[in-house]
Design a protein around this nucleic acid. Sequence first.
DNA 1: TTAATATATGAACATATATTCATATATCAT
DNA 2: ATGATATATGAATATATGTTCATATATTAA
Lengths: 112, 112
Amino acid sequence: MKESSKKDLLDEETLFQVSQIFKALSDPTRIKIMYLLRDKECSVKQIAETLGLLQSTVSHQLRTLKTLRLVKFRREGTMIFYSADDKHVYEIMGPSNMPGTNNQNGFFHFAR
Amino acid sequence: MKESSKKDLLDEETLFQVSQIFKALSDPTRIKIMYLLRDKECSVKQIAETLGLLQSTVSHQLRTLKTLRLVKFRREGTMIFYSADDKHVYEIMGPSNMPGTNNQNGFFHFAR
DNA sequence: TTAATATATGAACATATATTCATATATCAT
DNA sequence: ATGATATATGAATATATGTTCATATATTAA
């Protein structure tokens, strides 16, 4: 038995991925976007107008969310519709934190 | 019926608190600390030595975690022992994300 | 009180990040 | 092809944040 168990530490790979996910949801703008997309598709323009943000701002943030697979998208003409990548969000947050569900411990019920 | 439902947006208060909690766990150092404290008490010095960090660094980060009630503490002589504030972590993350529990969707099982 | 140990704090610095502006790219209709 | 619309991207800037160093505070023992 060692002084400190090996289980006291996380491997760098896990550490990085955990921090990335949390970082993604640590920004109010990205939270707004994820909340808006929790139960419906929206184009970039719709997101920008609904949230009162510049198109560029939304696009930049969507790239971050896309990279982390928190959102998925599909093209329709000149527009691109984004939506929450439920499958991956579920894997990440677990059932009690699924956006759009009614529960006490959910994703957006942190306050208080 | 309005164009966009009021439920599309989060109030500023909730938004701020959600972002704060995620921000707290978006830093690798703070994740390491929370992971270390998930099932035992540690003094500041023990944390610093186990994780190979400066005492000052640990103290600064503990203040952040303390402010958000992610850790609690008790004094014993000149030492102060910190531990995860399970009750509050539970409220925040829900049962499937309790550190120290064995599950598939937990707090520290994000990777892959 | 003084010395020793543990912890907290403030300033400085370097780095990361969110937003803005300008512009590029992509799709569709004509 | 051109023009119109939607989206993406790069550079610049301002702000936020993590770490370090030095020092302050607090507790205990002598």
